[in-house]
């Protein structure tokens, strides 16, 4: 799985996987694969949120993007 996946993308994929799993009409092999992938996505989301540093704040001044000092 690509680690570049954004939180939103990962969460959306995870939601789809859970829906498919809950549907029940699925091969067991497939289910186990989806489950593992879901767990990985969940961990990815978790890590993204947990490890997020402070929000990146920029300032748009004179059409130039600058660092913003509080």
């Amino acid at each position: 799985m690509s680690k570049e996946k954004s939180f939103e993308e990962a969460l959306e994929e995870l939601e789809t996987l859970v829906k498919e799993l809950e549907n029940g009409d699925i091969e067991l092999n497939d289910a186990v694969e989806k489950y593992n992938k879901g767990m990985e996505l969940s961990k990815h989301c978790h890590t993204l949120l947990k490890d997020a540093e402070e929000v990146i704040v920029k300032m748009m001044e004179d059409n130039q993007l600058k660092d913003f000092d509080e």
Partner: peptide, 11 residues
Amino acid sequence: RFPLTQITVYP
């Protein structure tokens, strides 16, 4: 709440 986002301040 959600530091994964970015902020651009337009003075």
